[in-house]
Each structure stands twice: as structure tokens, then as C-alpha cells.
Simulated scan of single mutants.
Amino acid sequence: MEIFGTLLPLILMFAIFYFLLIRPQQKKQKAIREMHNSLQRGDKIVTIGGLHGTIDSVDEDVMVILVNDNRKLTFDRAAVREVVNPD
């Protein structure tokens, strides 16, 4: 019975750690993964470097972004921070 009393605080600490830190991070990563998978031509985006542009084409890992004066830049798909399409 002493072992149970000793392990209970450790188990509670792990449960609190999981629900406050690990689980929210997993949800955030899943949302980012879904956003990257749903990118399509014409989406207005912001990259992790702060570049604003419109997607011209999307491949499996690479996309071409149209920026000022129809200049085309190539980025990794993972470089997208957010989609800013007006709804």
C-alpha cells in the first residue's frame, strides 16, 4: 500500500503534464499538417519568413508563389505559416 501512496503523486504529475503540455501541442501540429495538406492554387498565404503571396502551383513538397509584379518564388510547402484567404 505504501508503493501506491508513493506512485500516486508521480502519476498525477505525469497526467497534468500530458494534458497541459503534450496534448495541446499535438493538436496544434495536427492543425498545421491539415492546413499544409489543403493548400491549393489561388490561396493567399504568409510564409514563416513573413512573405505574402498567392500560390501559383503546388507539388508534393514544393510550391510556387506569385509575389509583387508577378514574380515567382519557389518555397517548401512547410514554409507556410497561415492561409489568409478572405472568406
Rank of each mutant, 00 (worst) to 15 (best):
P24M: 15
L21A: 06
R33F: 03
I65N: 02
M35L: 11
I65H: 00
V62W: 12
L8R: 09
I45S: 02
L66Y: 06
N37I: 01
G49H: 11
L39D: 05
M63I: 13
K72N: 05
D61Q: 13
D59A: 11
A79S: 07
V58S: 03
R41V: 14
V58F: 10
E2M: 11
N85E: 04
I11F: 10
N37E: 12
M1R: 06
P9K: 10
L21R: 14
V84C: 07
P86G: 01
K72H: 10
I32L: 06
N68W: 04
V84N: 07
T47S: 09
V58C: 07
L51W: 07
D56H: 05
R23F: 12
I11L: 09
E82K: 15
D59I: 00
F17L: 15
F75I: 12
L51G: 01
T6Q: 15
F14W: 10
T6W: 12
N68L: 08
Y18H: 08
F14Y: 07
E60K: 08
V80W: 13
L7H: 05
Q26T: 13
G49D: 12
F4L: 07
Q26F: 15
M63Y: 10
V64D: 03
I48C: 09
A15E: 09
L12D: 07
P24E: 06
P86A: 14
I3Q: 12
V67Q: 03
S38N: 01
R41W: 00
N70F: 01
F19G: 09
V64T: 05
I45K: 05
S38C: 01
N68Q: 06
V64F: 07
L21Q: 07
A31M: 10
T74K: 09
G53Y: 03
F17Y: 15
V64R: 03
V80H: 07
D69A: 03
T47C: 02
R33P: 00
G5P: 08
Q25R: 15
L21Y: 14
D87I: 07
M63D: 01
I48L: 13
Q26E: 15
L73G: 02
D69E: 13
F14M: 08
L20K: 14
G42T: 12
L73N: 14
V62I: 15
P9D: 10
P24T: 10
V83I: 10
G50W: 13
V58H: 04
S57M: 01
S38T: 03
H36A: 00
